[in-house]
Amino acid sequence: MSREELAPRVKDLIVRRLKLEIDPASIDDGAPLFGEGLGLDSIDALELVLGLEQEFKIKVEDEEVGVKAFASVNALCDFIEQKKTA
C-alpha cells in the first residue's frame, strides 16, 4: 500500500474510531494529533491502539512506542509501514 493510499485510511480510522465530527481529509498529515492539533487525549490513544490492532493487525507494544507513533498522521503511517515490513 502506497503512502497516498495509507494516509487517507489512517485519517479515516482516526475520525471513525474517535467519532470526530470532521472531514478526514481536513487532518493535516504533519499536525500533532495530541494536545494542540486535533487535541486528542490519553483515552483517545487507547481507542487508536485498539483500532490499529483490529484494522491493521498491528500491536503497539508500549506507551513509549505509541507516543512516537501517534505524533502525527505521518508518524502513524511510518509506524504502520515499519511494522508491515518487519
Binding site: S42, I43, L46, V49, L50, E53, G66
Partner: peptide, 9 residues
C-alpha cells in the same frame, strides 16, 4: 480488554 499507559479498558 486493553490498556495503554495509564488508561485501561
Amino acid at each position: 480488554h486493553a490498556s495503554f499507559g495509564p488508561v485501561f479498558r
